[in-house]
Each structure stands twice: as structure tokens, then as C-alpha cells.
Design a protein around this nucleic acid. Structure first.
Length: 279
DNA sequence: AAAACTATCAACCGCATGCGC
DNA sequence: AGCGCATGCGGTTGATAGTTT
């Protein structure tokens, strides 16, 4: 027996939302809170499927959304996170308060991709494009992953960015045995294809996310060297960025999950900060 | 002024995942 | 363990606004 459809399609509206529908949704969520998306449309008097309601709320109606252009700082954060996580838009969005995964995904596809290409960087691999594509006039890459990716059977090799810092390789380049300079639109196979979700992905899921149980309980990646580098990457700037207001004390070490005081080094991995929590 | 082209982004779709039974 | 349901995620589509010819 197959799964029942998420909604009775013949009785639901599709396409752009009207102001009245928006208002109904807002009013309902104000009164009852988020969740129960399947039953929400009926309860709120909306001829929409639950999924559609959820998407409309998450991506457009939520009061904490930041509208307007992305800042340069946000651009760089997105680029860095994408180099670490690949197309994990929701994880990236979790680090940029007020921005949705959909918004970041669209922004990536329409702006950042082009920006990286103009810098001579392959937006998928974050590697320099080959000589023909990298003109003399292009800016230096912001992230220069010079080390080849490891064979898929091995643990990831740490990469070096332009500042000389070691980084995790892009999550979605795990099957690339070398830094491919082509700009093919075909994305490499996802990491999960060869790795159980509970392994390598743990790192990504833990970045800057609020203390959601489903993320915390899978945080099992504990190679201290790798974790420390990850901690270093995640350290808050000396002056906290307005794009990262998730930072709130108390915090815990990302890799070891030990509680830390502000400015204190983790006694286990020597990383200073990591997993930020909401107060 | 209008047609053609391009860019943007809201919304949709299918699949994956987690959870309760 | 297996099933069904609810939710979340990422890729894609399509409407529309903006720009160019």
C-alpha cells in the first residue's frame, strides 16, 4: 500500500499566495504556533496543502526573517560554509540568522556562483578553475583547496585555504579523486552515498545550530585534530559579526561538547569555541 | 513601443529521515 | 522489524520584473 498523498490535490490552491491566505496563516500560527502542518490548512481555513503552508511560513512570513540584500560578509560566510558543507542549504542557513535555506540556495545560484567563477573558482569544488578560465585579471581565490581530495575510502584529508588554515574538504567532493577544474553543472554524488549519515555528516549538522536534540545526539565525530580545526573555523570573530547573532553564552566545544566559559580553551582539544547555543 | 532575452525568487515536487505504533 | 505518517531538504520550475535590442 502506497503512501497517501500529503493533500487532496484537487481541493487545494496552488501558485502564488494571496494576502488573505497569508493573513489567515499568520493569524493561525500566532494563535496555535508552528507545527501540525498536515492538519493546519483545514484548521486555518486554507485551501492549501500542509507543505505549502509550511514553506510559505518558513520562507516568507516568519517574523524573524531578514529581508533585503545579502552583505559582503554574508557572502563570504556562505562561500566558506559551502566549501565545507556543500549544498547543505539548511545547515548553511542555520548559521545565518534571518536567512532561509531557499533564499540562500537562490542567492547561491544567481549571484555567488557567478562571483566565484569570476574569481576563477569552481563553485562546486571551490578549486581554482584551469588556466584558461583563470584570467590574469581575476582576483585571487578566497578559498584555495590545493590538496587533492582523498580517495573515497579514506578519511578526509584536511585542506589548506589561502590564509594557510586547514579546512575540511567540501562535503560533496568526497568522490572526486582530484580537484576537477571543469565547471560541469553535474554535482558530485552526495557524501551519504558512501558514508553512513551518522558519520561525516555529523560535523556539518552541528555547525552553529541551536541545541536541537536530533543534531546533538549524532555528534560523534571525535578526531581531535580535525575537530580542533573545525573549532578554529567556527570561532566567533573578535567583534561578533551581525550575520552570526546565534552566538550566545554559555557555549560548548563543538567537538568535545564540554562546557566552556567565554574565551576559555577546551581542555580536551584546545579549541576555544564551537557549538553555540541559544539562551 | 514592443519584442526578445535575462535574472530573480517564490513555490512546487519527489525523496529522505525520524518517530510512533 | 516493518509500516505509515509528518516533516524537512534540495533540486527544479515557472511567473514576473527588469533589461536590452
Amino acid at each position: 500500500m502506497g503512501r497517501s498523498p500529503c493533500c487532496e490535490k484537487s481541493h487545494t490552491n496552488k501558485g502564488a499566495w494571496t494576502k488573505e491566505e497569508d493573513q489567515r496563516l499568520i493569524n493561525y500560527i500566532r494563535l496555535h504556533g508552528e507545527g501540525s502542518w498536515r492538519s493546519l490548512p483545514k484548521a486555518a481555513g486554507l485551501l492549501r496543502c500542509g507543505k505549502s503552508c509550511r514553506l510559505r511560513w518558513i520562507n516568507y512570513l516568519r517574523p524573524d526573517l531578514k529581508r533585503g540584500n545579502f552583505t559582503e560578509e554574508e557572502d563570504e560566510i556562505i562561500i566558506k560554509l559551502h566549501s565545507l558543507l556543500g549544498n547543505k542549504w539548511s545547515s548553511i542557513a542555520a548559521r545565518l540568522s534571518g536567512r532561509t535555506d531557499n533564499e540562500i540556495k537562490n542567492y547561491w545560484n544567481t549571484h555567488i556562483k557567478r562571483k566565484l567563477i569570476s574569481r576563477g573558482i569552481d563553485p562546486q569544488t571551490h578549486c581554482p578553475l584551469d588556466g584558461s578560465a583563470t584570467s590574469n585579471t581575476t582576483k585571487a581565490p578566497s578559498l584555495d583547496f590545493r590538496n587533492p581530495a582523498p580517495p573515497s575510502s579514506e578519511k578526509p584529508t584536511l585542506l589548506i585555504n589561502e590564509a594557510g588554515n586547514k579546512c575540511m574538504p567540501p562535503a560533496d567532493s568526497s568522490n572526486d579523486t582530484k580537484c576537477n577544474s571543469s565547471t560541469t553543472e553535474e554535482a558530485p554524488p552526495p557524501l551519504e552515498q558512501n558514508t553512513p549519515r551518522a558519520n561525516a555528516i555529523d560535523l556539518e549538522l552541528s555547525i552553529g545550530l541551536p541545541s536541537q536534540s536530533k543534531f546533538k545526539k549524532t555528534a560523534s565525530f571525535n578526531s581531535s585534530a580535525v575537530s580542533k580545526l573545525f573549532c578554529d573555523f567556527l570561532q566567533p570573530a573578535e567583534t561578533p559579526s551581525p550575520a552570526m547573532p546565534l552566538v550566545a553564552w554559555p557555549i560548548m566545544c563543538f567537538c568535545c561538547q564540554l562546557g566552556l566559559q567565554k574565551g576559555q580553551l577546551c581542555r580536551n582539544c584546545q579549541g576555544r569555541t564551537g557549538l553555540y547555543r541559544y539562551c
